[in-house]
Write a protein that binds this DNA or RNA. Sequence first.
RNA 1: GGCCCGUUAGCUCAACUGGUAGAGCAGCGGACUCUUAAUCCGCAGGCUGAAGGUUCGAGUCCUUCACGGGUCACCA
Length: 479
Amino acid sequence: MEKLAQEKIELFPHKVKTTHTIFEVTEGFSSSSPEDLEKKKVRVILAGRVMSIRGMGRATFLHIAGSRSRIQAYLKEDKVGKKNYKLFSLIDIGDFVSVEGDVFKTRTGELTVFVDSYTFLAKCLHPLPEKWHGLQNVELRYRKRYLDLIMNPAERDVFRLRSAMISHIRKFFDEKGYIEVETPMMHSIPGGALARPFKTFHNALGLDLYLRIAPELYLKRLIVGGFEKVYEINRNFRNEGISSEHNPEFTMLEFYEAYSDYNDMMKLTEELIHDLSLSLLGTEKIAFMGKKISVKRPWKRIKFKEALVYYSGLAPDRFDDRSGTIELASTLAPDKKAPSYGKALDIIFDKYVKQNLVQPTFVIDFPKEVSPLAKALKENPDEAERFELVMGGMEIANAFSELSDPSEQRKRFEQQAEARKKGDEDAHLVDTDYIHALEYGLPPTGGEGIGIDRLVMIFANRKSIRDVILFPLLRPKKE
RNA sequence: GGCCCGUUAGCUCAACUGGUAGAGCAGCGGACUCUUAAUCCGCAGGCUGAAGGUUCGAGUCCUUCACGGGUCACCA
């Protein structure tokens, strides 16, 4: 540093001119023959981060990394001049530089820039992690994601895939005539899901507010308002435990379509994920945790209760006994309170069924008790027109034929409020404003939420949600 | 939040049942004009996550705490 200052070299210049990205050069010329390159005289100015330096006396090789590939550069004292060559020894691994020169191939056939001038772009003040093993420490990888991204280029691919997925999803819905909307992140009554919210406070209004647990109730107000197809991709916040499948803030895609129901949503979901698989991965078979997930349509559908019976191996009438079912749930999950029949079924479902469903499966017709925003089934008032999509053992999506009868909705909210009084902190509050909106008429509507992070996990073959979220929540480290 | 495991140099890892904390890479100095985990010679690098305890003696055993991972609980 001091030496560089003595030489009056600017350590953090404002601007750099480049002619190509490193990727353009490696893509464009890797297959060119050495003779071709010599004839064409491909002259380039490239910028990137120095990842390795191999000094050979009066010649030096280095690798410079761009965002998508790296390229070798070759420095020779004869070429850059004695003074510049000597100054180059002040460059450290990790520094940003730009190099200008012709592209050629070395004896070993590696595409290389024959440097005749170079410029410092930014100094790296810390040594980079070890070049061979890279950064392995998971805590450091999440805390200092930038280092993870520098050292483990495959991690960059995960986030490129994530970005590509989201832009494909937008395209998919836009082409179907959906409009993308943004609804409030701060709610005075948290709703739309069974979960605990984060609480905050608005000073000027003197108002308690909650970070949203779901956009659902606002999106349906928009259907009431006359939009027929809406979607939103944004963050939800749930004040719950952290695990390899849960981050307190996570990205949810929700979409609602008037004049449709949960059957239409199943078709749409199949189409969307099948599309994504073909365009992002180029296959119908996704490799996930050593297994192949086939997204070939149509996908399996199984009724919630049939799934319970099938995977638990218990007799079908076993689940008709309400108190017996609650008892079974408490033996399966002793720490868990099973306050209701519906909740108990949910527990048994999680225990027996979910992990076994690797191939995409629509589990349909959930207990109405745990589906307060879904229409009841015509043939069976205890069940709701609701499905969950399970893939790779994870719940990926949740959808229903939206309950539109305001008085029925009020009743359901009241039941929820009752459960809440009994200690179920996830239960809904009565949202009278939402009921009022329904009183103006919600047409038959299908709605769905898809957990984007988990879908990325499957597409990127990652076991932990933290691997697909750039900055997962960690406890701050005390110095 | 419960249980289990982990935390040693900037990074990746060693150190036997308690007996003087080491290596590779990175860094610094030197040699080397087609190397690629370059090579060769030399140097430096540490309150072993924190605080207590047991012991003549603790990286190692015990207790508490911090952070992380796994798992269960809550949930998507």
